[in-house]
Design a protein around this nucleic acid. Structure first.
Lengths: 176, 176
DNA sequence: GAAATATGAATGAACG
DNA sequence: CGTTCATTCATATTTC
């Protein structure tokens, strides 16, 4: 086999135009677009590329969630001098910050081997059978597990996170 | 909206076995299990991993709510007659689709594995605004993709469109 | 080519 | 119960 692994095409990627429109709408202050709005937006966006309503929905959801999280920075944090890089999802404080210069730079020479996209299947070592997973744990595992084949088979019911569970003060007494 | 953040800890993740059981029960036609049922189910599920009654409850609720608005993926609005001959042959390649590898327990069955599948979508990859890009594709196609010189963000010019979201449970069902 | 990051998608939990 | 939020996961993309 060679590059016949084109099973891809799973994740939708907004086109620049679509992104512009989406951002514009999002910027208008509407946090939670209604179904009708979604439809409307989708209708317009579909003219600029393939897209579905759920894509729009997801986009707004993600956008909103992300905007919320990226707020608190390292303020007043006395600790954290040089402990761990804390590989979280917070990279920058600004919103817009992406670029893709290489992909566009095509050499006129014609000898540009842009042969990336090989079968790079970085298997994510996600704990399969564990029940309660800690966020930081999975994050680290992501990176560590790539190289090593550490397939820690977490035994079911062997995790030590069975205790931290009575914190939810919501305990909805599911009726009936 | 003011969600309480229960010390942001772990989110319960059903083990394959638990999932199986849950699905089986759900499939039996009981839409809204009574408290007793929940208890019973929990009793059984807890033997296969950490779980609580509210987890079961939530699961059923989500499942039910999800099953309702699931079925239609509003895509394919763009008429595509031709453009790119979608050359793909995922037949001889190892589909490294480890979406949810849950093969480690004494799971006698394993039907809860969802994978992409058929992609019978012959969408027209317009070089102007493409949406779904294939992971394995980055060569001369880049030249074709006109790629607008907008600013940042992805100016992708790949191709490959489809709607291969046909898992067992998809559809976001954005309401409101 | 692998690591790191960005971000779309899946799902459990919560609100009204 | 329907809808929305929050967190995680998967994958595309970018960087080293």
């Amino acid at each position: 086999g060679h590059k016949i692994k084109m099973t891809g095409r799973q994740r939708w990627t907004p086109t620049p135009v679509q992104l512009q429109i989406l951002e514009r709408i999002f910027d208008q202050g509407i946090g939670t677009p209604s179904k009708q709005k979604i439809k409307d937006v989708t209708e317009e966006l579909v003219q600029h590329g393939q897209i579905a309503e759920h894509n729009v929905y997801n986009w707004f959801q993600n956008r909103r969630a992300r905007s919320k999280k990226k707020q608190h920075v390292g303020v007043g944090s006395s600790n954290n001098n040089n402990g761990e890089p804390e590989v979280e999802t917070e990279t920058e404080t600004l919103n817009e910050k992406r670029k893709r210069p290489e992909s566009l730079l095509v050499l006129p020479d014609g000898n540009n081997n842009n042969d990336i996209g090989t079968t790079t299947t970085t298997t994510s070592p996600r704990p399969e059978d564990l029940c309660f997973q800690s966020p930081e744990m999975s994050s680290d595992l992501h990176l560590l597990g790539v190289l090593s084949n550490l397939r820690d088979e977490h035994l079911v019911g062997e995790m030590g996170l069975s205790e931290s569970y009575n914190l939810y003060d919501h305990v909805e007494d599911y009726g009936m």
